[in-house]
Design a protein around this nucleic acid. Structure first.
Length: 662
DNA sequence: AGAGTGGGCCTTTTT
DNA sequence: GGCCCACTCT
């Protein structure tokens, strides 16, 4: 395949400002300066994956590729922003024209331009998971099925089934057979619910997360002109975390790259942790088949961790049967105190105590709190630790749990804006309606039916109790849809707060002040957008990691410990890492170890966790999980920390604390 | 009939 | 802490 025009020399390479040879190792250099064509980079943990991608982008631009001809796909907005920032620091060029972002945000960008080709209008709104689950249940009800029937799946489960079908591009029956055999009796019903759910979204002009990918791909498949346009535009497609792509994402890449064939896919099969979302690391394996002439580069030098930490990581992952052979080696010298520590505690509160105490000691040694992270399998594993840190006034930031956007008050205010923008948004309408006294699900639905039946919004008749606030809503709605204000999200938010929402909040929430401050931040965030639909889309696609402001009783920018799920920690690193709650059944999760695939994915997750650590790694497990709502339960240590070879870890003895109830 | 409230039960991971 | 269900109140 000849693609001679790609490295056209509009800038002479001699003007290069970057000394690639000096700044990269041989493996990285080979990837960064590879000739045009498909490239597969197998990069181990901590080997400079981000660095390689960043320099590759810089290299392309220095060699005359225009920024808008580059598509850089990542898994999180944070990763995308960091990479683009680093490219910007390397080059004097204007890099804002690079197409960079998550699969979902790039799909969103395409769909905003071309939604009308698909029967949507370009101001469609995006459903978050809760909204989507509600709509799925509404679809179930619409089929006439009995919602009391316990054999029918709940909204979240429906969504999982539909989502897996979308992400793997399989039919509902296939997904049910392969992944949900216990629903095979009701597969017809599931298909019916799915059809209604899909039609409802279209009628309401809303899309769920999976739809962004589904419709973006459909757009390219069904419209030859658009397909050609974007295929020609994206001369270079670069993909981070390729091992976590699923069928629909890899098809999206393949179709966009079908003209230029210039894809750089970077990944590590050992870090594939999203199979439950349809991710299939065999995409890595089959890449060379799909892109003939693929050049393979392996980056196996780890710069991040001490050899002792890496030894543990390599030992842990070696138990997996399904993996590509790799030889990840450390460049850092062995250090005296860098052997991972394994610590057994009585229960979760003693564990929390130990961690806080150790962190305080580290602080005294001069370690910055920003250099410390505590990682766990599931958000609720961090509860006792959060309480202890709060008690000690130790500043921390939560990367897991509810996102900024998912908090009720943020969603409420956003609903006003959504409905103002898209009067077909049923969920937004019903959400606001339900804020009114005496209005619940039934009344909300009746009012919606009247509206759909052609009634004027202003002439709807709510129950007597709700008349006054309803009038206020009508008035507010008028204000935020005037031509001057429509589209200006920040002002709209202020109007909604002043006119109606503030009064509601005072009566509804005990922590009214703090929520009001949240909304102030929401307003500030909204000022970054020129159009309300851009603001709302970004809000829906944003995770709390990506800048959703969160405060746990601390000032902004104050150093703090990070508390994160391992999934959220992917791609990040800290000097000091604690991995907690290493109890069998919690990590690995009980439900995951029923199959070999499940157990191996948990082990990869453990591998990801330990490879986040640069200098010190602490593995802790409580013998008993005590919590307010559960009976105390004895726990077995995680299979991932049992039977280590001698010398791999230091087992710390903690003198037993007085029982929690004394 | 449908909105609001209190008690019991269980907790994966996310764009 | 959150969700669901059953019960009570309007």
């Amino acid at each position: 395949m000849s693609v001679e025009y790609v490295l056209k020399k509009t800038h002479a390479p001699s003007s290069a400002q970057i000394d690639y040879r000096a700044e990269l190792n041989d493996e990285q250099y080979a990837a960064v300066t590879a000739k045009p064509g498909p490239i597969l980079v197998i990069a181990g943990a901590g080997s400079g994956k981000t660095r390689t991608l960043t320099y590759r982008v810089a290299y392309l631009i220095e060699n005359g590729v225009e920024p808008e001809n580059i598509l850089l796909l990542t898994f999180t907005n944070k990763a995308s922003r960091e990479m683009l920032e680093r490219v910007g620091n390397l080059l004097p060029h204007d890099i804002s024209r690079i197409w960079g972002g998550t699969f979902h945000s790039v799909a969103n960008r395409l769909l905003r331009r071309h939604a009308n080709e698909l029967g949507f209008s370009s101001d469609f709104t995006i459903l978050d998971r809760d909204d989507a689950a509600d709509l799925a249940i509404a679809a179930l009800k619409a089929t006439g099925l009995d919602t009391k029937d316990k054999t029918l799946p709940k909204g979240a489960v429906l969504l999982d089934i539909f989502g897996l079908a979308a992400n793997t591009e399989k039919s509902i029956p296939t997904v049910v057979t392969e992944n949900y055999p216990y629903f095979s009796e009701i597969v017809d019903k599931l298909e019916m619910i799915h059809r209604i759910y899909r039609d409802r979204k279209k009628a309401d002009n809303v899309m769920d997360y999976d739809d962004l990918l589904v419709y973006a791909l459909k757009l390219l498949r069904d419209h030859e002109d658009l397909r050609k346009f974007y295929q020609e535009q994206f001369q270079h497609v670069l993909v981070d975390e390729y091992q976590d792509t699923n069928k629909i994402q890899s098809d999206f890449i393949d179709i966009l790259a079908a003209y230029h064939h210039q894809v750089m896919a970077v990944g590590d099969d050992a870090q594939s942790i999203y199979s439950w979302r349809g991710a299939n690391f065999e995409n890595v394996l089959t890449f060379p088949e799909r892109f003939p002439g693929t050049r393979e580069v392996r980056i196996e030098t780890n710069y991040r961790s001490t050899p002792e930490i890496l030894a543990l990581a390599n030992y842990a992952i070696s138990a997996n049967t399904k993996q590509f052979p790799k030889n990840l080696h450390a460049v850092r010298p062995a250090e005296k105190f860098s052997k991972p520590a394994l610590i057994c505690l009585q229960d979760a509160s003693q564990q929390a105590n130990f961690i806080c105490q150790r962190i305080e000691e580290l602080q005294e040694e001069g370690i910055d709190l920003n250099e410390i992270a505590v990682l766990y399998r599931a958000h609720f594993h961090s509860m006792e630790l959060q309480m202890e840190m709060t008690r000690r006034q130790m500043p921390f930031e939560l990367l897991s749990g509810l996102r900024f956007f998912e908090q009720a008050h943020v969603k409420d205010v956003a609903a006003f804006l959504k409905f103002a923008l898209n009067s077909r948004d049923e969920l937004a309408f019903k959400r606001i309606a339900a804020l009114m006294p005496g209005v619940g699900e039934r009344t909300g639905d009746k009012l919606w039916q009247k509206l759909v039946g052609g009634a004027e919004f202003a002439s709807l008749e709510p129950p007597a109790k709700a008349v006054a606030p309803w009038k206020q809503w009508v008035e507010t709605h008028k204000q935020i849809t005037t031509p001057e204000i429509r589209g200006r999200a920040s002002e709209q938010i202020q109007i909604v707060i002043d006119a109606i929402y503030q009064d509601y909040m005072k009566t509804k929430f005990p922590n009214f002040q703090s929520r009001l401050e949240d909304l102030g931040q929401l307003r500030a965030f909204a000022q970054n957008f020129e159009k309300t639909e851009e603001f709302l889309a970004q809000l829906a696609l944003m995770t709390n990691v990506d800048g959703g402001p969160r405060k746990e009783g601390r000032a902004m920018d104050q150093p703090c410990v990070r508390l994160s799920t391992i999934h959220q920690a992917k791609g990040l690193e800290w000097k000091i890492v604690f991995v907690i709650m290493l109890c069998d059944g919690l990590f690995p999760a009980a439900r995951s170890v029923e199959t070999l695939e499940g157990e191996e994915e948990e082990r990869r997750l453990f591998y990801v966790a330990v490879t986040r650590a640069c200098d010190e790694l602490y593995l802790t497990y409580p013998l008993m999980r005590a919590s307010a709502s559960f009976d105390d339960r004895w726990q077995e240590p995680s299979r991932f920390v049992m039977n280590y070879p001698r010398g791999l870890v230091n087992e710390w003895k903690i003198k037993s604390a007085p029982p929690a109830w004394s």
